[in-house]
Nucleic acid binder design. Structure first.
Length: 879
RNA sequence: GGAGAUAUAGCUCAGUUGGUCAGAGCGCUGCGUUCACAUCGCAGAGGUCGUUGGUUCGAGCCCAACUAUCUCUACCA
């Protein structure tokens, strides 16, 4: 059973090979075992033409951890993969590509454009999927879906028709956000507001009767072209007499009224507001209340329309300049002041959005939002961390109707048909035979497509086969957890919740695990424009997928942003290497068949100690994972492996391993293999590759670690006494090393170490541990005894619990220094004892604190007193 | 305008039901290359847990106020 493993772990040699093995053996396939509980996560579908970035890496790692653990716990598991068509993002890329060829969308036409889009999709969908595989993602790839594949498109139409028939989808000419660059409407969620420096132009609007002016202020003077009123607050004394009078709109000459409306804030600006119903959401509302004309002054590309008179055809910003110039020249401009204001921009292209009135399709939200709000308030839907529930609720409770139509080509075309004769709208999967209104047989389909998020909202059930009652759907819906970034709570999470509730009657998932953003080392968001993005694939290539995964889950709290550093990945890589070498050590020494189980009576205190520690770890790791505390779990497993297992247990058993085969050696080997393979299992969800590789050597009879039984706490491995005793020995060793370092004793200098204790049981434990106490404490001889026989007065003493360790260092010792050291120790112990004395004499503490806490403090005090006594005795001997 | 988050060792961050919780990694100091590992080992220095009050026998941990930074959200022309 000799194993020849390299002294360094090489992820490249392992990862692709193991991933292939997993795939070929069908380990990722969704379980269908009737007797088992089910567990399902749907992947947040990456953009089909996108590339893997750190956000994906984090998101996918978290999901894979949950999925792999559940699989080991014996669930039927489905991690449902797929990709999103990302309507606007993909279309932008295509348009850009066309532009490089000197073409435009319009020139090639819808048919040709879609042909290219599908070709593009075919070309790139594999790229993102193979990148996810590089991370180790254990999705059931055989079930990969795409938001525009047949089934999902059908689900989209189904929902659209359903909502339309229910009156929850309607078409209306309302004011919407328009992107002049992409030439499409946008939902409110797609508008990003940013503060931009601008100006406040004060302009005079003269009364028609020549009796003076009203002064208004605006940040967008070009919209003056569409003004149809000036509004003042009804309470405003200053303008009381003006209401109802007519004004002449400068440059345009149109007569517009002065109206009064509550919306106007008396305190802001001049207290008089120009009203442009066609280009401002507020003005739109005011316009409706006062029956004002809506004059659209912009074309779809952001140039001034024919309604703009001499400015027609100019770009909106050129027009702004020209209008300001003209106002100035004609004496209407009163003043200009710098003014910071909030500008809405398109989140994709960052072009300033223009409010416009356009006929668009909307989802009526108030009714849909109610159950989605209730689900969170009742606790049925839970956010981890909880604070995100507040953010969700705040948005849901103030939600407005969702504009779902887009003037794009790549996406789900709206299933609405218009009668060529009378314009009647018929919504359905196909055009009707004849118009229900006029009987005409000619129809044309709505040109627009749906917001990408309309289909994403159905993802948790459309991917499982809905609206068909498939086996998959029945088994795995509702899903268990959703894992995603807080940046898409509104876009996606909220919409899936109300969609699931409305169409399936169930919440699409119970738990929502939110994570933050991976930032660069300076805390900046990674972005293309800054060029500060880190490519996860390069990181994997350099350090391995396990190292990247481990880095992304450790050292940051759920829901918080994190910074990426190479140094962090190096640390994870080093951990993988440490584990590799520890395993190599175990395998090197594995020369025999080991028994399945071991009688506790055959184990030493050290063996029982590590089993106990592992037992506790298994319990804590499972509990932490159940609470989505993945980082804490990873930390606990790492420190167990590195500190307890490598630094202590392996060192403790070495002498036993180097002995000839015997029962004691077997016990050590059994414990090593048992604990290590258990630790590998706990680590597997986090570091799937290296754990599988090592497990295959340690447990060659098992096919894979992926379906190895997840460790659970077992009472048979609970050894509280040994845990305490071995921890005491660790303390003794540390104390001895510390003293030797302080005394600057060379590691080459071996000594005798004498443990003195009048407790027979403690003596036994230390005698048993002598085989490792000696090498770890640099001793050539270890003596355990009840009295001071043979201990010179000048020996260095280390006070321990129920025991003192002595090291006779002979002439190496400077007695004055040793006295000083012990004096300091005495001072420290006296301080601790005094502190505890005060605490324990406080009746408030002893009376109100739990008994266990009080007892703990008492025991601590007793212990310090013992140690103090030992120090004092030694000081007496030295003088 | 509203809401939320963060403020803990030189740096980046953990610390989840208030009682060994003052921690980790990196960095730093000293020592170390006997057969798992220098992608390592051993020992160590370093913080009155943003400020001020409060609740409590006891508070990084709960409450209030304040300061600083960040984020989300909102129609103030």
């Amino acid at each position: 059973m000799a194993h020849e493993l390299a002294s360094k772990y090489d992820p490249k040699e392992v990862e692709d090979r193991l991933y292939r093995k997993w795939e070929e053996n069908g380990y990722f396939k969704a379980g269908e075992d009737e007797g088992k509980p089910n567990y399902c996560i749907v992947i947040p579908p990456p953009n089909v033409t996108g590339q893997l970035h750190m956000g994906h890496a984090l998101d996918e790692t978290l999901q894979d951890i949950l999925i792999r653990q559940k699989r080991m716990q014996g669930y039927n598991v489905l991690w449902q993969p797929g990709t999103d068509h990302a309507s606007i993002a993909t279309e932008m890329k295509l348009v850009q590509q066309l532009a490089e060829d000197g073409l435009t969308k319009g020139e090639i036409g819808r048919g040709e454009f879609l042909k290219r889009a599908w070709a593009w999709k075919e070309k790139y969908e594999n790229r993102i999927i193979s990148q996810l595989k590089k991370l180790g993602a254990s999705c059931d790839w055989s079930k990969t879906r795409f938001t525009m594949d047949e089934g999902l498109s059908n689900a989209v139409e189904e929902v659209f028709i359903y909502l339309y028939n229910k009156g929850l989808i309607y078409k209306s000419a309302k004011i919407i956000n328009w992107c002049p660059e992409c030439k499409t409407s946008l939902s409110d969620a797609e508008v990003e507001y940013e503060d931009q420096p601008g100006f406040f132009w004060h302009i005079r609007y003269p009364y028609k009767d020549g009796s003076g002016y009203v002064e208004i202020a605006t940040t967008r003077p070009e919209t003056l072209l569409g003004d149809t009123a000036v509004a003042v607050n009804p309470e405003d004394e200053r303008y009381k007499d003006c209401v109802g009078k007519m004004l002449i709109l400068p440059l345009v000459g149109r007569e517009i009224p002065v109206i009064e409306d509550e919306y106007v804030d008396k305190e802001f600006g001049t207290g008089a507001v120009k009203i442009t119903p066609a280009h401002d959401p507020n003005d739109f509302e005011v316009g409706l209340r006062h029956n004002l004309e809506q004059i659209c002054i912009l074309n779809d590309d952001g140039t001034i329309s024919d309604n703009g008179g001499k400015y027609a055809g100019m770009d909106r910003y050129e027009a702004r300049k020209a209008i300001v110039e003209d106002l100035k020249e004609q004496g209407f401009l009163v003043s200009v002041e710098p003014h910071e204001h909030n500008v809405g921009t398109h989140d994709r292209c960052h072009t300033t959005v223009e409010p416009m009135i356009k006929p668009q399709w909307f989802v009526k939200m108030d009714e849909l939002a109610k159950p989605a709000i209730e689900a969170v308030k009742s606790g049925e839907l839970r956010f981890y961390p909880e604070r995100y529930a507040k953010i969700y609720l705040n948005w849901m409770e103030n939600i407005r109707d969702w504009c779902i139509s887009r003037q794009l080509w790549w996406g789900h075309r709206i299933p609405a048909y218009y009668c060529d004769e009378c314009g009647e709208i018929v919504v359905g999967h196909n055009a009707p035979e004849r118009c229900p209104k006029c009987g005409c047989t000619h129809f044309h389909q709505d040109e627009d497509v749906l917001d990408t998020w309309f289909s994403s909202a159905l993802w948790p059930f459309s991917t499982l086969g809905w609206p068909e009652e498939t086996e998959l759907y029945k088994r795995y819906y509702p899903t268990n957890a959703l894992v995603t970034g807080y940046d898409i709570i509104f876009f996606w999470v909220a919409r899936m919740v109300f969609s699931g509730l409305e169409y399936t009657g169930k919440l699409p998932f119970k738990d929502v695990l939110m994570h933050g953003i991976v930032r660069d080392s300076q805390g900046r968001k990674m972005s293309k424009s800054l060029g500060n993005g880190i490519d996860p694939l390069e990181v994997i290539d350099k350090y391995g997928a396990d190292a990247l995964r481990f880095t992304l889950v450790t050292g940051n709290a759920p829901g918080n942003d994190m910074r990426y550093y190479d140094e962090k990945v190096e640390a994870s890589r080093n951990f993988a290497n440490k584990l590799w070498n520890a395993s190599r050590f175990v395998l090197m020494n594995l020369k025999e068949e080991l028994p399945e189980t071991m009688d506790a009576a055959d184990l030493t205190a050290a063996d029982r100690w590590i089993l106990s520690k592992f037992n506790t770890l298994a319990k804590e790791a499972t509990e932490a994972l159940d609470k989505y505390e993945l980082g804490i779990t990873a930390d606990a497993v790492e420190s167990f492996i590195w500190e307890e297992f490598c630094d202590w247990y392996i060192e403790m058993v070495k002498t036993r391993l180097y002995a000839e085969p015997c029962k004691d050696r077997t016990a050590a080997m059994w414990t090593l293999v048992t604990v290590l393979s258990g630790a590998l299992k706990l680590l597997h969800p986090f570091m799937p590759f290296i754990t599988e590789e090592l497990y295959s050597y340690l447990r060659p009879q098992e096919e894979t670690i992926m379906y190895a039984k997840w460790p659970v706490y077992q009472e048979a491995w609970n050894f509280p006494h040994e845990t305490e005793e071995v921890d005491a020995m660790k303390e003794a060793i540390r104390g001895i090393r510390d003293v030797r370092t302080q005394m600057q004793v060379s590691p080459k200098q071996k000594t005798t170490v004498i443990f003195v204790s009048d407790d027979a049981h403690t003596q036994d434990i230390f005698r048993e541990g002598a085989s490792f106490l000696a090498p770890l404490a640099f001793a050539e001889e270890v003596r355990v005894q009840a009295d001071m026989t043979g201990v010179e007065a000048t020996a260095v003493s280390i006070p321990l619990h129920k025991m003192t360790a002595f090291i006779p260092l002979e002439q190496l010792i400077d007695l004055d220094k040793e006295r000083a050291r012990l004096g300091k120790e005495k001072e420290r112990l006296e301080g601790e004892i005094g502190r505890l004395e005060k605490k324990l004499s406080n009746p408030g503490f002893t009376g109100k604190a739990p008994q266990a806490v009080v007892d703990g403090e008492r025991a601590k005090q007793t212990r310090y007193k013992e140690q103090l006594h030992q120090v004092e005795e030694q000081l007496a001997r030295l003088s």
